[in-house]
Amino acid sequence: MARHYITTPISPEQAKAIRSGDEVYITGTIYTARDAAHKRMVEDLAAGRPLPFDPRGAVIYYVGPTPPKPGQVLGSAGPTTSYRMDKYTPTMLQQGVKAVIGKGYRGPEVKAALVANGAVYLAATGGAGALLAKRIEEAEVIAYEDLGPEAIRRLRVKDFPAVCINDAHGGDQYRDGQSEWVAPDAMVKPK
């Protein structure tokens, strides 16, 4: 397992070099979007409207951060459950997004889309939202402000930590990690 320090936007070569189980530290711009924002983005694309950010090489973080306290850039910013974005993720990857960050399993359609589009699914540590927020240096709402915490934000991050779960080659850390350490009859099956 390797460690990658990446500055956004992520190139196709960088995305393909990341393997399941690798540590990834992201510096630069990432965008926040949860289910409501993804639904709107896909609707916008279907209507011929552009996305609110350039998706080429972009990173989307599945998070609905809490409001900042005085002196904070953003409140707690822990990952949300990723499978809620599964029906939208293939479309976003086709637009050029190279990494998505969340927590939990992804469905087979998303795993296939990651391979087809040379992208990766990264996991951030659930329950560590306050610590993850310390890696965020700037935050600005750029679209869908009416969605409140689910509005799309542009974040500037420094060494934002994540682990690659699904890579562009079909690697799956949840599957492979369990097969290495857990008896087959005790393995957790994705929903």
Rank of each mutant, 00 (worst) to 15 (best):
T8Y: 00
Q14E: 15
A15D: 03
T27F: 07
T29L: 07
Y31E: 04
A33G: 14
D35T: 13
A37H: 01
H38K: 08
D44E: 13
D44N: 13
P52W: 00
G57L: 05
A58D: 01
V59M: 02
Y61T: 01
P65I: 07
T66R: 14
T66Q: 13
G71V: 08
A77S: 14
G78T: 07
T81V: 06
D86T: 03
L93H: 02
V97Q: 00
K98Q: 07
V100G: 13
I101V: 13
I101T: 05
I101E: 04
K103W: 09
P108D: 14
V110L: 05
V110M: 04
A112E: 15
A113M: 05
A113F: 03
G118E: 03
Y121S: 07
A123N: 05
T125R: 08
G127E: 09
A133L: 03
I136C: 07
E138H: 11
V141A: 13
I142A: 11
Y144N: 07
D146P: 11
D146C: 11
L147C: 02
L147W: 03
A151M: 01
I152Y: 02
R154P: 04
R156A: 04
K158S: 10
V163Q: 11
N166D: 12
D172R: 02
S179D: 15
S179K: 14
V182E: 10
K189M: 11
P190R: 12
K191L: 15
K191E: 15
